[in-house]
């Protein structure tokens, strides 16, 4: 437990807004990690420590929370995150074809990042759009009723 918190003013301001919602500092942990991740891309050990210091938690306490969430990244990810829904309805209506197309096109497997750091491909549990399956999210945007051809068009729009 050493070293001061190295959060930026902006990060601190946003975390303070979250802290106002809760009765303990610890409760803001997930939101604080997401804020820092938004700016830094992922949660390195240093980032984890910065947040832990600020919330007066041990690194281990905060890491126990960080590691249980699917979308707190403790390893670097690419500029754009492709979250391909691999849950049941999407699986029934075409997940495997989409996955094959994306993997082939980007030359990576599920869970990997392209060498140029542009994309990381991850599976996501049901994105709650099963009536428009198969679906994926890229960053904050949901794409529905996908086909391999449509995926090609969409990926072309990301740099």
């Amino acid at each position: 437990m050493s070293g001061a918190s190295m959060l930026t003013d902006e990060e601190k301001r946003e975390i303070d807004e979250e802290l106002a919602k809760y009765r303990t500092k610890r409760a803001a942990g997930p939101e604080a990690l997401k804020i820092v991740q938004k700016y830094r891309g992922w949660i390195s050990d240093e980032s984890l420590r910065d947040v832990a210091r600020y919330l007066e938690l041990s690194d281990e306490e905060l890491d126990s929370v960080a590691t249980c969430y699917n979308f707190i990244f403790r390893r670097p990810v690419g500029r754009h995150l492709i979250l391909l829904c691999d849950s049941v309805t999407c699986w029934v209506v075409g997940y495997e074809d989409l996955r094959a197309r994306i993997e082939q096109r980007l030359g990576i497997q599920m869970g990997q990042t392209t060498p140029d750091g542009r994309f990381t491909l991850l599976p996501a549990a049901c994105l709650g759009a099963c009536d428009r399956a198969p679906v994926m999210m890229i960053d904050e945007q949901l794409y529905v009723e996908l086909s391999p051809a449509k995926v090609d068009e969409i990926l072309d729009t990301y740099r």
Binding site: K21, T24, R26, A27, P30, E31, S64, C68, I72
Partner: peptide
């Protein structure tokens, strides 16, 4: 009233997991 946005874990929807998640603990 506040909006709490989670970070993706099925167990956060389980009633007691949700209580722990709200407190910033593992669900």
């Amino acid at each position: 009233m506040y909006l709490h946005t989670s970070a993706g874990r099925y167990m956060c929807g389980e009633e007691n997991g949700l209580l722990n998640a709200m407190e910033g603990k593992r669900p």
